[in-house]
Design a protein around this nucleic acid. Structure first.
Lengths: 424, 424
DNA sequence: ACAGTTTCCCGTAAATGC
DNA sequence: TGCATTTACGGGAAACTG
């Protein structure tokens, strides 16, 4: 009958950063006979925390009680909006219960809301409780925290299971791939298509896998990818952030193939005209995008070149579509040329990207305008080595991706008063 | 006998930002006969503030009292270090005393330190007080606040004059120019030479001025430069910041002439070989640096080109010496060329700048390395207009600048216990 | 020494106040 | 409405702490 809902502002729902305000809303869904309408709601953090269960303890620094009010004129229901902030309790003698191997982003907390009133001599206690929360102290912990929220809500059906991450959670690929797609479709207007998801699945499960194969939480988020200093999710989330901050229009227009193995990439480009390129996320660096183009020599041999991936620091200085427009390859003593001609499969690049270019401003009058041109120097005699082995797989049609309309809405109407009606 | 000293960490002394910790130190300079050594010092903000004098009121959020301790083993004197933070008092009924036209960075505050003890039945009260402080709420107010601190300490001789900025302060050019030089020599190892100071003087006082001419505070800091949306100090401080963050080695090596009028610049370059350039700060944009080079056509006519100034956003992406190394001018269908050959007066550019170049890393193996090249496109048929009139002044020798060894040290040993021994 | 975690605080953006 | 000032908080780095 009462529903809390929670959202941190630009942040992710159910992740709370200490010292940063977040809002909660509690609604009384049944319309009660007009008592005195002075229904005071009290917020408590980790109300019934099982002793020794969390290694850190927090408290609410803001007002914890507030009186409910009539929500609006259409429905007469009572509600109250809180604006809270948390802070860690620091004990002199640090008795941190670090009994577990859990990291702070796997530690689940909860907010409880209580109200008491008397009606016709009857004492009534209302209580409701939020979905599990992850509490962090720095935005750098956000990716890990969000992974926890995703997995909890993907896999947990029980009313409230704060020890969820002690239980070695695992998800089937069919469950997980759906959630991964949501991460893209909720951050942009473009989800992931079958081929892209397939590439991600291979990264986690190896070459041949089925929908029912299981991915362990630790494989997803805790263990580093073989030979890399980051886990699968940290890598994927860095790409989500890159899209959000620097590639949104390009991604939304579906010009980024993004998740393609290098083998597939070569197979796709091999038969295409010289100067055909595609855009792909870096697998070796966090939050990087590169383009690969094909060049056929006179004897018909194909060469593939990929630029050093562009990361946020470069993209802060340069608009990505402009990079595609302006990119030049310099060979000694020759006029620099842009090797990028056709977006895979065969679209002249100005056609898709033209609308997205920033006009070069020739403003600052007394001065000569100046731009940054992304350049690669290539010695004419040194050609980059081609890969030793190539798997030839059928080309995919990146023309249209599936649009996934589902959205994760953890932040709305999540928990019912009696705790039984948990839904997402 | 007691001395407070104050420094905010990366910030400027005597400027305090709300919510940011700052440290103070109080020393008892006379060694007292061992009482009980329990000398408690209490800090108070704006202790005797004349009613209605400040428009904002603040309080100390941290502990205000602490016991003095023996400083170290060499001298047995007592001292105490505080770590304070301030916050603004907000009244429901905002009775801000904005009687004055003063901005918040002109509002002066002070910290008082008190201690009481009894010796042989005699009550002794010690009290000392800091130099005037400027309290800000955002770093964006730092330039204005620092200007106030500079001017107060430059001009005020009275013990403590918290109404200093109500008195239309003015400084002679000889006083002011010295302080301006200090701003550079304390932020780098290079002050300002006579020619540079002269250019700054002309900006404030017009073409012909003398050392005894007076600059008003409002002209220095409050009124915008004619035709520009910023004041003289805001402009100059933006350059100090540019040097600190992006140009330190280049500035320290004295390769930046910096403050030269455009007329002077042309006069200097006119007789030099084609490709001779000098570095100058932008007068039209905040925190910008540009280079101007001379090009002589076959008939001997000189052309001067200045590149659009580089500001922090560009310099975040590109190392300034690399810009000089890599800068290219593109004319249609011709191999791009770097027009920068000799640093004024005639030094081949790689000689001074060579040591400062960043090596181009050809790291990321499977990828083709890529750099950003700063480029200007120049149509061969359009030549930039030459200035209508040029004053021909004698070239200056930028080879060596005077090094000013003086440092402003507001943050040390500033106020004596009885308030009479104020020195800088 | 070190990794996980928190604190610190600048600098931009948004909100607020006047 | 516009300008001056404060608040908010992301993000990088330093400090902390087992």
């Amino acid at each position: 009958e009462k529903q809390p809902c929670m959202s941190t502002h630009p942040q992710k729902p159910l992740v709370i950063k200490t010292g940063v305000q977040f809002t909660t809303k509690v609604r009384l869904l049944v319309i009660l006979p007009a008592i005195d309408y002075h229904l005071k709601v009290k917020t408590t953090l980790d109300k019934d925390l099982p002793p020794g269960r969390v290694s850190r303890q927090f408290f609410i620094v803001t007002n914890t009680t507030k009186v409910m009010d009539i929500e609006d004129y259409t429905n007469g229901c009572l509600s109250v909006d809180f604006r809270h902030a948390l802070r860690e309790k620091k004990y002199g003698n640090s008795t941190k219960n670090n009994e577990s191997l859990l990291s702070v982003t796997e530690e689940l907390h909860s907010l409880s809301f209580e109200a008491h009133f008397t009606i016709q001599g009857l004492n009534i206690d209302l209580e409701t409780c939020s979905l599990p929360l992850v509490i962090i102290s720095n935005v750098s912990q956000m990716p890990g925290a969000w992974a926890s929220v995703m997995w909890y809500n993907l896999l947990n059906d029980e009313p409230k299971n704060l020890t969820f991450f002690s239980g070695l959670p695992r998800a089937t690929w069919s469950q997980l791939s759906e959630v991964l797609g949501w991460q893209f479709s909720t951050n942009s207007s473009q989800g992931l298509n079958k081929e892209q998801l397939n590439m991600l699945g291979e990264k986690l499960l190896g070459q041949h896998f089925s929908d029912s194969d299981q991915v362990y939480w630790s494989k997803f988020c805790k263990e580093n990818i073989r030979g890399k200093p980051f886990s699968f999710w940290i890598w994927l989330d860095s790409i989500l952030e890159l899209i959000r901050k620097h590639l949104l229009p390009v991604w939304n227009e579906n010009y980024i193939m993004g998740f393609v193995s290098k083998e597939m990439e070569r197979a796709l480009l091999r038969e295409k005209e010289s100067g055909t390129f595609l855009l792909r996320f870096s697998e070796s660096h966090l939050g990087g995008i590169t383009f690969t183009w094909v060049q056929h020599s006179d004897n018909g041999e194909a060469t593939f070149n990929s630029v050093e991936p562009y990361t946020k620091s470069r993209l802060n200085a340069l608009h990505f579509p402009d990079i595609i427009r302006d990119y030049k390859v310099i060979s000694d003593g020759v006029v620099p040329k842009n090797p990028l001609k056709f977006l895979y499969p065969d679209i002249p690049k100005d056609e898709p990207f033209g609308r997205l270019y920033n006009n070069l401003p020739s403003k600052a009058y007394p001065y000569i305008p100046s731009t940054l041109i992304p350049c690669s120097e290539m010695r004419s005699n040194v050609s980059p080595p081609s890969p030793p082995r190539e798997s030839l797989e059928p080309p995919m049609t990146p023309g249209e991706f599936d649009m996934l309309n589902k959205t994760l809405c953890f932040d709305m109407d999540v928990v019912s008063l009696d705790g039984s009606n948990t839904r997402m």
